[in-house]
């Protein structure tokens, strides 16, 4: 394949809450085997040498597992290919002479920090609300004490693959965090170890996501289509069911006797 040249139309924004704008940058003579992020590296070195500020973008592992990279390329989170992260997008997916827009995620709960970098700490807060099984180190029973049917473990693993990149919420026209929440709730809800806190978990995580300002789900499944791990929206159905069940159970179960003042 021959080397190509493209124009990058990049969102530049100096800081949180500041006005931003698109700026065009030429990227010339690119080896098709180069990754999209490596192309940005090269453009950044050129900018640096010209005395301009390089484009800030988030990245770390560059192999699609850490969930740091988060570009919206031509309107789609993580670019044109399905089932890959921005860092696994290669120059060969583009054509010579193409104008490529590169934007940050745009949703209220993920405010822009600078240029293409957004603040996704909202996802951490959702996890803190209930995305765990309470086990103190040292108190765990023997690992093989509870068998887990293979298919349940595999399905849980399908959900657990989530890399927390936020593409689902970015792709959703409602900025909903449903796929993210669903993946975590389903993963833990499918494991026998996760049953004790199952209801409490789903209620807390959904309410926290709502409170952080994520939107609701309209079942259009843009999330799973944008997900670099192609996590299925079946898990959203599971989340809905778990939430509704937990709401009904919470309404009808009898309350344990609590010590006054507890």
């Amino acid at each position: 394949m021959k080397n190509i040249s493209v124009t990058l139309r990049v969102w530049r924004q100096a800081g949180p809450g500041q006005p931003g704008r698109f700026v065009d940058y030429p990227a010339r003579d690119l080896n098709p085997a180069m990754s999209f992020l490596e192309m940005l590296d090269v453009v950044n070195d050129e900018l640096t040498l010209k005395g301009e500020e390089p484009i800030a973008f988030a990245h770390d592992c560059r192999e699609g597992i850490c969930g740091t990279c988060s570009l919206v390329i031509n309107g789609k989170p993580h670019g044109p290919r399905q089932g890959v992260a921005s860092c696994q997008t290669y120059v060969r997916s583009f054509e010579d002479g193409q104008v490529i827009t590169v934007e940050p995620y745009r949703l209220r709960p993920f405010p822009v920090v600078k240029d293409l970098v957004t603040d996704r700490s909202a996802f951490d807060k959702i996890q803190q609300a209930g995305g765990f099984i309470t086990v103190r180190a040292g108190s765990a029973p023997n690992a093989n004490a509870i068998p887990v049917p293979k298919d349940d473990a595999e399905l849980a693993m399908d959900a657990a693959q989530c890399i927390g990149c936020g593409a689902c919420a970015a792709a959703c026209k409602n900025a909903s965090a449903m796929l993210f929440v669903a993946a975590r709730v389903s993963h833990l809800g499918l494991m026998p170890q996760g049953q004790a806190e199952r209801d409490r978990r789903v209620l807390a995580m959904v309410q926290t996501a709502d409170g952080l300002g994520f939107g609701s789900c309209t079942n259009q499944y843009e999330c799973s289509a944008a997900c670099p791990k192609l996590i299925s929206h079946d898990f959203i159905a599971r989340l809905n069911r778990d939430f509704i069940k937990a709401s009904f159970k919470a309404a009808f179960r009898s309350e344990p006797n609590r010590v006054v003042g507890d």
């Binding site: 108190s139 765990a140 029973p141 068998p147 049917p149 293979k150 993963h187 170890q193 996760g194």
Partner: peptide, 16 residues
């Protein structure tokens, strides 16, 4: 033991 209790979905055999 600790990781299994935390819900880590390790690979399993058919017997669970």
């Amino acid at each position: 033991d600790q990781c299994v209790a935390l819900g880590v979905p390790f690979a399993r055999e058919y017997g669970g």
